[in-house]
């Protein structure tokens, strides 16, 4: 009981509690995950479009993109963006006669790294969903004289999203867990904040344990949300079972 009370004081909202800091960091984790996931959706759509295009050059590019980014560790991509981006920023700043190291903003690094990696996974999900849409629906849209833009908005996008939703849900869970790696750039998200708290209180177990609980809470809530979204997009469809 005494141990539990000490633990709750440590991670709680009292005078010496880290509760507020941990919750702010959890919000930062969610923010960088959402920003990265949306960046990844844009990249993923473009790459899926490239992989489905008739041009061999674009297809080659799309295949290379998805193969390379799914085959190398995410940490390498983060290092590339953080150090490579900082070096590039330093060069640009050099023109304006500023000197010294300019750090790439950690949030932007995280957003881009997550976007670039999850873009490869989202591209595969979207491509699979597009290939699974019934051809008849697209032919019907053409038959009633829809233009490409209208057809994309009214027919293709809703159908693809419905089929892609479970896969996108999986990618979102990957993205959430990948945000922990962004802590290496110094962005104060959940893991970095736990490291800071663990270092300052010398109670690493309590803080990493709490971090795991908070991550589980986020993944659990997002599972529920995605399930509801799936149910919603399946309205009006008869199911086999």
């Amino acid at each position: 009981m005494e141990a539990l009370r000490a633990y709750l004081a440590l991670v709680g909202f009292g005078e010496n509690g880290w509760g507020k800091a941990l919750l702010t960091a959890t919000a930062m984790t969610c923010a960088v995950a959402v920003a990265g996931f949306l960046t990844g959706s844009i990249i993923g759509t473009l790459v899926a479009w490239a992989k489905l295009s008739r041009s061999p050059l674009l297809r080659g590019f799309g295949t290379t993109y998805t193969t390379v980014l799914r085959g190398i560790p995410d940490l390498l991509v983060i290092y590339l963006l953080y150090f490579g981006g900082s070096a590039a920023l330093g060069t640009v700043a050099g023109f304006f006669s500023s000197d010294g190291f300019i750090g790439m903003p950690a949030f932007v690094t995280g957003m881009l790294a997550i976007g670039i990696v999850s873009g490869a996974y989202q591209a595969e999900v979207l491509r699979g969903a597009f290939l699974a849409t019934p051809r008849g629906e697209i032919e019907a849209a053409k038959a009633v004289g829809m233009r490409a833009g209208t057809m994309l908005r009214r027919i293709v996008a809703p159908l693809v999203l419905r089929l892609a939703l479970p896969g996108l849900g999986n990618t979102w869970q990957l993205v959430l867990k990948e945000t922990a790696l962004i802590s290496v750039t110094g962005l104060v998200e959940l893991l970095r904040q736990s490291q800071i708290a663990a270092g300052s209180t010398r109670r690493p177990f309590e803080f990493y344990f709490t971090a795991i609980l908070l991550y589980l809470a986020i993944t659990w809530v997002s599972t529920l949300l995605f399930r509801r979204a799936e149910d919603r997009t399946m309205r009006g469809l008869r199911r086999a079972a």
């Binding site: 959430l176 922990a180 893991l191 177990f205 344990f209 993944t219 659990w220």
Partner: peptide
Amino acid sequence: VFVFRGSPLLVQIFLIYYGLGQF
């Protein structure tokens, strides 16, 4: 399965490497 798939591997590594050092 819920715990190990629902939290980042890096935090699991930290919990084991740094966290258990406390005991």
